[in-house]
Amino acid sequence: MNMPATKIEVETATPAAAAAPVVALTPKRPPRAETYARMARETAVRVIPPLVVIALLTLVWELVCRRAGSALPPPSKVFADTKELIFDPFFDHGGIDKGLFWHLSASLQRVAFGYSLSAIAGIALGVLVGQSVWAMRGLDPLFQVLRTIPPLAWLPLSLAAFRDGQPSAIFVIFITSIWPIIINTAVGIRNIPQDYRNVAAVVQLNPLEFFAKIMIPAAAPYIFTGLRIGIGLSWLAIVAAEMLIGGVGIGFFIWDAWNSSHISEIILALFYVGIVGFVLDRLIAGLGKFVTRGTAQN
């Protein structure tokens, strides 16, 4: 049985080896060109449709707002009005007369501060609620009610408590973004398979080791879902909060532009707010992907 089979292999192997040098040069080039072509095609498939849509929408906007007496400026006018702001985001004339970079960075700093606090407190509370039945029974109803309070409703209260705009804005970020972090972390902790707990028990991990080596990695996909929702909410909240507290920040920049009837500047600011929000979301998503690689599948 074995012999004929090996013979066949030898026979086929020789001509293939002999033929190899002849074809070697030709097939090598097409694949490379092909991969480039495929990459270009894949990029095109993803990039062209949104570009077409954006171009069409801009065209419609231009046509609709071009007529005299229209309430909103057309894109061409927006660009003309805000050219200085676009090309010089770093100017600083003192007070709140600063480039958009400074406004955005002031907002981002508030978000970074408030969001970091809520990430730490949210994960800690989530672990508590996920781990202890009594903590869940006691705290969960409270969370469910508190999380429905709109971000801005907290602002007057926090202004009363802190008597200053800066900590109040940070508190609003904190209180807005903490709920999804708590709730998702708790779900993640509750869903840790009993098997992993058994392994930890047999190995005799102490609570701290269990937290670091089992709990956090096992719940990481859930935690990052919460963190991602949280960053989105905190960016939503900061713009609204800054409109009310004033000072440097993209939210107040928008409000200030409205008060001075600079509609073009509002539109430009909205564009930046959208882009920054998108980048923040991608950032947390990417971080989550990096941290939880390997955890997702079994």
Binding site: D195, Y196, N198, V202, V203, K213, A218, A220, T295, N298
Partner: peptide
């Protein structure tokens, strides 16, 4: 009457920790 490494268990569904490598899974214990 409490779990411990003197009675190590091989679980039915292996129960390896998916975020650790083979080496790290053994190393943990």
């Amino acid at each position: 009457n409490s779990p411990g490494p003197d009675r190590a268990v091989v679980f039915q569904n292996h129960s390896l920790l998916p975020w650790l490598t083979v080496y790290e899974n053994v190393r943990l214990g």
